[in-house]
Nucleic acid binder design. Structure first.
Lengths: 273, 273
DNA sequence: TTTCTTCTTATGGTATGATGATAAGATTGT
DNA sequence: ACAATCTTATCATCATACCATAAGAAGAAA
């Protein structure tokens, strides 16, 4: 049983000393990532980060609810919501009379945006980017094939529109990144396979999170549209194999671009965040 | 704003009329899926089923917390935990002052075991099985390639052991299905790509859930070991391409087997569940 | 000593009621 | 008509209490 934190003094006092006030309004009292709205979400983030950073290892027990309340200075309801949240992400498992235990890594839902961003902030790792692109190379070429072969004309129209959006936003870097995601998602949606959509959405969020880590979207170098155009034309022509190959190529270029941006960002600026 | 349920009378009275007793012990009072331990999990399942069955459409608001308490005869804490759970699965989004709204289908985490089983129980659809196998065909052959090319000898040993387990359990149908999953998971683990592991775990759970729907594991016909042996030997020989092709073949056979079992089950026994 | 039973305790699950903050809608004054 | 204000609906949080039960401790019997 691993126990952390000096007994008594909260590691992170989210709520301050005053006890009997509504808490939502005290958001301004702690600067710690005030973009997260609720306290339970913040507690979840803190505990989650401590788990993915390895401070709690698989099989370890978390402190009991009452201790967590003390540590973070919040009520039991809040802690319970946070814990439930982490359990839903399969980071922990909570059983009556036995406490809250960290699950083995293999159980973690790494596709969860929160889990991903916690992992990135705990220790940024190019490996995570590589893994993401490995997954994309598995799914997106196939999705492209299916979109070309069995997508409806409405699907194709939407893909075309997303491409047009991309073109029109080419100069505004942050918008372009979003438009690019939408292009990919439109292709995936054209497969009409819900699981593809789920995985695609997770990957999109994951990439966005990793971009925001490097604080720059693809290092400002303008995107080369040619590979996208190749994908688009192959899909519209309903040439499955060509679409598949074009997407494979696109992803490879994209991967290189992102890794280059990461490397570039790594050498200037002494680290991550 | 969509409101369902006749105001006042609970649709499902989970807790009964008595109000001031601990509730866990009253599990025996309702037969409704008593395998689920906590009430909040049951409430989540009921609401989740109503969502995936289309009773609430995307954009609709769920009844407010107080109404849900009444409908299901549980306290607000319980309802809140259930709602949080559904939000973690991206079925709904809850915002202060605006209530709880159903998210568009594209946001749902279809890889979540609960979501999958709710979908299956709401309306069993061969399509879901097809989608699952489409996903498997995307990433398992690639995982096989990577396992063959870059797996450690420990990884390979573990794969070999899982295969041996499969062989030894060949006659006990329920165990064999589990052993087969473990074989696949061992291959996926050998890629050392966490995302593959996450997706693989979800797919495994999903298949298990769909099997339990048909109440028979692969219709009792004994599994043909040859394709598995082909995969194993290719991996151990570190022949990536051959391993990839062998897995592709294996999955295709497996898919046919499962669909046949589903069809078989469909014609006798007038439906699902 | 060993084993079985019983008691205690630690721990999560649930209930209840109250307060706070605020977005959305209703009301009112100009 | 429009803008400012008030009210309400609704979730977020807190505090406290009780219950059920798994695990562990203590004691009794063989």
């Amino acid at each position: 049983m691993l126990r952390i934190g000096l007994a008594g003094q909260p590691l992170f006092d989210l709520a301050g000393a005053a006890s009997t006030m509504g808490a939502l309004g005290k958001r301004h009292m702690f600067e710690r990532d005030s973009t997260i709205s609720t306290m339970s979400a913040q507690v979840a983030r803190i505990i989650g980060t401590r788990i993915v950073s390895g401070e709690f290892g698989p099989g370890d027990s978390l402190p009991i609810e009452a201790e967590l309340c003390q540590e973070y200075g919040v009520s039991r309801s809040t802690v319970r919501e946070a814990v439930k949240n982490l359990a839903a992400k399969r980071l922990i498992e909570v059983a009556p009379k036995v406490g809250t235990r960290v699950l083995p890594f293999a159980d973690w839902n790494l596709l969860d945006p929160d889990v991903l961003s916690w992992r990135l902030s705990a220790q940024f790792d190019e490996r995570i980017i590589e893994d993401l692109y490995e997954v994309r190379q598995c799914f997106e070429p196939r999705a492209c094939y299916l979109a070309a072969r069995s997508g409806t004309t409405e699907d194709h129209d939407r893909i075309r529109r997303r491409y047009a959006d991309m073109v029109s936003m080419l100069d505004q870097a942050p918008l372009a990144a979003g438009a690019e995601s939408e292009f990919h998602l439109a292709i995936i949606a054209a497969t009409h396979n819900g699981l593809f959509v789920t995985i695609g959405g997770a990957v999109k969020t994951a990439l966005k999170a990793s971009f925001s880590m490097t604080q720059k979207d693809a290092s400002g170098t303008p995107i080369d549209l040619a590979p996208y155009e190749a994908v688009l034309s192959a899909i519209l022509a309903r040439e499955g194999e060509r679409a598949e190959a074009a997407m494979r190529c696109l992803l490879d270029l994209s991967r290189q671009r992102v890794l280059a941006a990461v490397a570039h960002h790594r050498e200037r600026g002494r680290g991550w965040r």
